[in-house]
């Protein structure tokens, strides 16, 4: 029983937050901060797979998030709200329970496919040049969407809130919050399982010595494909959740600034540490809210903090250690297969 303490604790926490939100103990502001925290955790941990574990420098994560956000939004809007393309909704509101997760999946899948744009050149090229490719990919996604008038172009795209309204019409509980928490949990769980398997450790082998990895039987191209697609796919999931939290998206919210934010979280937490990235995402979200009073100065202070971090603790808060490495007693409370 003790071995499951952490697992039970996590689910209890999710249930507790949902209940508190349901009875308005947590007001809308805190709920939205919690949801963005979840989205940030997914973004930071998934980018960490590429920038931390694989040692690449991907600086276009926002682009994949954008693909996921738009594709899943398009799905739910077509299915559940009145729109300019099809007119009436395709499906009744009761179908939202299947439709919403499905749309998130489709969005993630689309983002994973978009990840191929970066994954395929990564077979031949590494480092700085690959960084540029990710950067260009980010710009291409943003300017492609800016040019699609049918989904609003630069003005953005909306109508996603109909999905939550649909779900709430059946049962009035904070659905998007619940889905966000489950999505966050699922992503971290997926990544944890991947990087702790012998298969997933091939990714770290690539980062430490790619030639040795290839010659010692690691199919480096396949590993890169998996890492990039998994990473961008999860970014897509984060994008889908983000879009349905806000009920509105525009391309500018996924530009290079967003990608930079995600990188800040990864390097704040420590490369190659999932719990580090997750903690950093929590810290970063809180910091962004706490520093709100600084207004424009916020984005002077945060880079400064990171510069100081690079000078004095460049390995990030956690280095490549996990929480359980720092506090071995934690292991007693969870069993990880």
């Amino acid at each position: 029983m003790q071995k499951h303490t952490v697992t039970i604790g996590v689910f209890a926490l999710i249930a507790l937050i949902a209940v508190l939100a349901q009875f308005n103990v947590l007001d809308a502001y805190y709920v939205s901060v919690l949801m963005f925290m979840g989205v940030n955790i997914i973004l930071a941990t998934s980018l960490n797979l590429v920038n931390g574990y694989m040692g690449e420098f991907s600086c276009g994560h926002g682009g994949f998030m954008c693909v996921g956000a738009y594709v899943s939004s398009l799905c739910t809007v077509l299915m559940f709200s009145k729109n300019a393309i099809l007119g009436a909704p395709l499906l009744p509101p009761s179908m939202t329970f299947i439709g919403f997760p499905l749309a998130l999946l489709v969005g993630s899948f689309a983002a994973a496919i978009a990840g191929l744009v970066v994954a395929i050149p990564s077979f031949k090229t590494r480092g700085d040049y690959l960084a540029i490719i990710t950067l260009a990919a980010n710009y291409i996604v943003i300017s492609a969407i800016n040019n699609m008038e049918i989904i609003g172009g630069p003005r953005g795209f909306m109508g996603m809130s109909a999905t939550e309204v649909g779900m709430k019409s059946v049962l009035d509980i904070p659905w998007v919050l619940i889905f966000t928490m489950l999505g966050t949990l699922g992503s971290v769980w997926l990544l944890r399982r991947f990087v702790s398997s012998t298969l997933g450790k091939g990714v770290s082998a690539i980062s430490q010595d790619e030639i040795a990895a290839e010659i010692m039987s690691v199919d480096t191209n396949r590993m890169k494909l998996i890492a990039f697609m998994l990473s961008s796919g999860l970014a897509g999931l984060a994008g889908g959740l983000y879009a349905h939290i806000l009920g509105y998206v525009n391309p500018q919210s996924f530009d290079i600034m967003r990608s930079t934010e995600i990188m800040v979280m990864v390097y704040l937490g420590g490369m190659g540490s999932l719990s580090g990235a997750a903690l950093a995402a929590v810290l970063f979200t809180v910091l962004m809210e706490a520093l709100r009073f600084l207004d424009v100065w916020k984005w002077v202070v945060i880079p400064l903090l990171l510069i100081l971090l690079m000078q004095f603790r460049p390995e990030g808060l956690m280095g490549n250690k996990e929480l359980a490495d720092l506090f071995p007693k934690l292991r007693k409370f969870y069993s990880f297969k």
Binding site: F57, T260, M263, V264, Y267, V296, W297, K298, W299, V300, I302, P303, L304, L306, I307, M310, Q311
Partner: peptide, 14 residues
């Protein structure tokens, strides 16, 4: 160093 450069750019802008 690359991250420092990126952050320095942000500081200049903002």
């Amino acid at each position: 160093v690359v991250i420092t450069a990126l952050m320095a750019g942000l500081m200049l802008e903002n």
